[in-house]
Design a protein around this nucleic acid. Structure first.
Lengths: 226, 226
DNA sequence: AAAATCTTTATAAAATCTTTATATCACTTA
DNA sequence: TAAGTGATATAAAGATTTTATAAAGATTTT
């Protein structure tokens, strides 16, 4: 999964910034760095990121102050990274609008998981798992299929079959497997069902029925989505 | 601030439940308790709470399993409370849909602050109280629906159904999900209710009943608001 | 009690699935 | 090459399921 979300790191320690940058970049995040409160606020305002990682111990101003100023307008997740482990700081930060608080040194795996959790719920509407294959798009959470950005109307069974093929793009799915998965184990002999529904799907998503480019027949074996 | 939000505690240790109950009740939360996985899932289904506090070490089933089963339909915050402090458990829980993870013994002040933080962002209805979709407007805080700026008179059930559809604009909501959420888990077989109320809603907000543009039927699956 | 709302019943219409019939294709063999 | 064979494609009829809607009865609210 490539995300490319922009993350702003506000921390004055260069080695922490470096560690974070390398870790996050190798997880497909785009990084912006700031080493002071002033710089951080400026960067956030000029290029609002998807998430902010904020150190509480900044040289020019308290991190708590930065958090408050950010929260006057910034609504996306803010995670606090701090050496302070006392409850007072944690409670204060969370009540001032921080979404999470990790005590340094933190485990990077945990940080990444907490970031995923926050990004998941913050962009719950906009970020759907959309699979795009040439002119065909399928949004599994909306249960929506598009061809050239036009919605394609599919019945429940047609959708299930297409989704199964697309989830296994490139792989041959046997008749048996398809029948068992879509219709149930007692239908593995009803190959004719499969032919009927494959034909219907092709009518809806292929441009040239005599030369299907997406749903490929593997004679004697099954079908494959390309 | 009095909140009166309902919180479900799933934990098998009576003394922990007692501590949590007393702490949370003195902070104006209403508490429901469960000591096993089975009991917890049942309680959550029958009285969906505003938040769930889930222990990972349950006697009958793994807490991870409970989390997965809950997340099949429960969308509000879940905080994990566990004696396990290893990164593997934390990452797994967060990636399975937990919103936070606190290692026992935890500080109650911090737990309360993290709960406030999650409740704040989960009740995002206050941030975007008005949703506009073409000619339909819904003000979730006022419980008011307008069509072309004209107020539409809806009954309580009609409103609940429409609001649920609109909050999930574009997504197919299954019969099961709609029935369970609006009428309760014991009504999942009463599809006819849904048909009657969908017809009533369409009469009130669609221009052409023979060609509904907002409430779309997905035969065999459910309905979708566009 | 009256009004509003929810629940249940009945029925028509629409959509979908299943089955049948026939055509087509790829490949083998005379 | 031509006929034959098995697998596949497609249309269309028939059967079944699902949905829409009105309206009557029951319940709750005012």
């Amino acid at each position: 999964m490539s995300n490319h979300a922009e993350i702003l790191i506000i921390d004055d320690e260069p080695q922490i910034r470096k560690l974070l940058t390398i870790t996050l970049q190798s997880n497909d995040y785009n990084i912006r760095e700031a080493s002071t409160a002033r710089e951080g606020l400026l960067s956030a305002a000029n290029h609002p990121p998807e998430m902010i990682l904020l150190d509480l111990g900044l040289p020019d101003e308290s991190g708590h102050m930065v958090l408050e100023k950010l929260r006057e307008w910034y609504t996306k997740p803010i995670i606090i990274l701090s050496v302070q482990s006392n409850e007072e700081d944690i409670v204060k930060a969370l009540d001032n609008g921080a979404n999470d608080y990790l005590v340094k040194p933190f485990r990077t795996g945990e940080l990444l998981a907490r970031m995923r959790s926050l990004l998941r719920s913050s962009s719950s509407e906009s970020e759907h798992p959309v699979i795009t294959i040439q002119d065909i798009q399928i949004d599994l959470s909306l249960r929506l299929v598009k061809k050239n950005d036009e919605p394609v109307k599919l019945t429940a069974t047609e959708y299930n079959l297409l989704a199964l093929l697309i989830k296994n793009e490139g792989k041959v799915l046997t008749h048996q497997f398809l029948l068992r998965t879509i219709w149930g184990p007692s239908y593995i002999d009803q190959s004719q069902y499969l032919r009927v529904f494959i034909a219907q799907l092709r009518k809806k998503i292929e441009d040239d029925l005599n030369n299907p480019l997406h749903i490929i027949t593997e004679s004697g074996i099954g079908y494959r989505f390309v």
